[in-house]
Nucleic acid binder design. Structure first.
Length: 588
RNA sequence: GCCCCCGUAGCUCAGCAGGAUAGAGCGUCCCCCUCCUAAGGGGAAGGCCACACGUUCGAAUCGUGUCGGGGGCACCA
């Protein structure tokens, strides 16, 4: 529709210029916007104000000339000039009636498009360290990432969803060591658990499982384990030195094979738990990309070599530094520590470098907002290694924290304390639908207060129920129709749409026609919340209509028309909820 | 100190590639079922869009600065 109006205006301007009325360059694009107020018609064009200066003409006069030269269109009922020089278009009812046909014809595909033109987009999200169950902070990234990915797929992008598994590095060693220490306790040893170890119940579970399977074969006396280990923090030492020494001790006492038994089991159990959790949440991936494969295949070394080749690398005090300040970072960053261990930054560079070389047109990372300082240095490295355009293909979307409130009380979410609220607990409490919906209700850069009581409430306070109820209500009407022995004929309904003359019907039609634009905007701007708000409006239009008019009327043609309309509304709500990963119940 | 996000109705938030009287939900106050689920609908009250300058025909929207809230600034991952 917008395109149609743009063409009309363009044609009018072309006429005016070629007739020599104005001497100006035709604008690249002509803005046609939905009006906010129905008294301004359906669409408005501001072109007269934009061109007024160049045309040396008052906006309203210019607008009048444009209107006079507009080609005729059967979809436009009237054109008015208003305010400072807006050209307002009011569409004919027939123009809106065609929307119903479009929806009926497209069904579940209504709202989908191919503007993505099959371009390959990778969306990497969650990627939480496999050191414990997902908590509610990860949940927001999961819901947001999954929805953004689905939206992009809906508008024609070829989407590759990926979870980067940080299964190498120090945190994993701390995990393996934590499990071993718990195992020792189960085997009968008495020890003081390190302050920096993982203390969650799931560590005990994994340890118990291993103790069950292997008995005491990995048992060592506490005295040997803690022999020559520097003191932990409560004892006046450094907690980092303490845990690092314990890791070394575990590797030494257990040997490579024994150590890997603990390491692999912990990783397996936790990763499959995460995978299952996400699957139950409706979040699935095309690929789980292990950091270990990056290391073992030599990609990290290759990346470092590439970085060296760029000339932006130097050695200082035994460490290898990347001069990221050359690219506007505030300080240089270490890539290889003086003890020879590569930093997390090194594998991250390698991962992203490799990602950009995997043939994606666009790469989207979804990170927690606490990582924002990381963006410039990753981009700096990619720019140094390739060219600027490579780095520009990477979009990093930062998701702010979600804070849970239960009865006004803030919930803990520290992975280390063992007293966090897990995603699974949240899902059990409010259900998958409410969790998915509430997480994407706010734009991602907005700090979010997640009100558990509201998400659980089955009342009109809860926007999710309001939308789902609209869907269920249509289903209910159709059930009533059967019970009353009334007939419905879609073909007749489509032919009788001209009977839909009520203002409520016009309003609903107008809203339904917007759906494809909303999906497109939500996808391209990575803003699922736009779809949430739209669905609420659509549900509102439907509920209002429901209250104002009877659908199951005696007049067969009118009944067919109205039922066709509300079935179209149901389809749009169904499609929209589907994109949000939320169910559309047939009865409530 | 530097960087990121936020500051719109009592509360939670839309609106922000500039546009015509600033919107919704909740809460408050009225009203609507002999009728397809009242888990609904209609109406009222409620705002110097944090503040100040600037750009513009036009600023909640763009720019700069100030103030307030949240977060981040390791040879950790």
């Amino acid at each position: 529709m917008k395109v149609h109006l743009q063409e009309l205006v363009k044609a009018a301007l072309h006429d005016l210029v070629s007739a020599g009325v104005f001497d100006l360059a035709l604008p690249e694009s002509i803005a046609i916007d939905r009006t906010r107020d129905a008294s301004h018609g359906d669409f408005a064009c501001n072109i007269a104000m934009v061109l007024a200066r160049a045309a040396r003409c008052k906006p309203r006069d210019l607008a009048e000339k444009v209107v006079a030269h507009l080609p005729k269109s059967d979809r436009v009922e009237k054109v008015e000039i208003a305010g400072p020089g807006f050209i307002n278009f009011t569409l004919t009812p027939a123009a809106y009636h065609s929307v119903v046909g479009d929806i009926v014809e497209a069904g579940e595909a209504y709202g989908r498009s191919d503007i993505g033109a099959g371009k390959r987009v990778q969306v990497e999200f969650v990627s939480a360290n496999p050191t414990g169950p997902l908590h509610v902070g990860h949940g927001r990234g999961a819901a947001y990432g999954a929805t953004v990915a689905d939206l992009l797929a809906a508008v024609g992008f070829q989407v590759h969803r990926e979870y980067y598994v940080n299964d190498a590095g120090r945190q994993m060693d701390i995990l393996a060591t934590s499990v071993w220490l718990r195992y020792l306790e189960l085997a009968g040893e008495t020890l003081t658990f390190p302050i920096n170890g993982y203390k969650g119940d799931y560590i005990w579970d994994i340890a118990a499982d291993l103790h069950c399977g292997h008995g005491d074969s990995y048992r060592h006396a506490t005295a040997d384990v803690f022999n020559a280990i520097p003191a932990d923090e409560p004892a006046g030492g450094d907690k980092e030195d303490h845990i690092d020494a314990l890791i070394m001790q575990a590797k030494k006492l257990l040997g490579e094979e024994g150590y890997l038994t603990f390491f692999d089991r912990a990783l397996d159990v936790i990763l499959s738990d995460i995978r299952q959790d996400l699957e139950e949440f409706g979040v699935v991936y095309e690929e789980w990309y292990p950091e270990r494969s990056l290391v073992s295949s030599g990609k990290v070394d290759a990346a470092i070599a590439q970085l060296k080749k760029s000339g932006h690398v130097y050695e200082q005090e035994g460490a290898l530094w990347f001069r990221s300040t050359d690219y506007g970072d505030e300080k240089d960053r270490v890539v290889v520590r003086d003890n020879g261990i590569k930093t997390y930054f090194a594998s991250d560079i390698a991962y992203h470098w490799h990602k950009l070389n995997r043939g994606f047109d666009r790469v989207i990372d979804i990170w927690g907002a606490d990582h924002h300082g990381y963006v410039p240095r990753v981009k700096a490295a990619l720019t140094a290694m390739g060219d600027k355009e490579d780095a520009d293909r990477l979009d990093v979307l930062l998701v702010q924290f979600a804070i849970l409130y239960r009865g006004g009380q803030k919930a803990q979410m520290s992975t280390r304390s063992g007293e966090f609220v897990t995603l699974r607990e949240l899902r059990d409490e409010v259900g998958n639908d409410a969790a998915r919906f509430f997480y994407v209700m706010r734009k991602c850069e907005q700090h979010m207060d997640f009100d558990l009581d509201l998400a659980k409430s089955q009342s009109n306070d809860n926007p999710l129920y309001y939308i789902q109820y609209a869907h269920a209500r249509v289903c209910s009407v159709l059930r009533q129709m059967d019970e009353k022995g009334l007939s419905y004929d879609q073909g007749s309904g489509l032919k009788s749409l001209n009977l839909l003359e009520e203002s409520h019907e016009q309003a609903l039609l107008r809203t339904l026609s917007r759906y494809p634009e909303v999906v497109e905007a939500a996808a391209l701007n990575h803003e699922p919340h736009q779809l949430v708000h739209y669905l609420r409006e659509a549900a509102n239009d439907f509920h209002t209509y429901y209250n104002a008019h009877q659908f199951l009327v005696d007049d067969g043609a009118l009944r067919d028309a109205r039922l066709t309309l509300i079935r179209a509304a149901r389809q749009v709500i169904y499609n929209g909820l589907g994109l949000l990963g939320v169910s559309a119940p047939e009865s409530m």
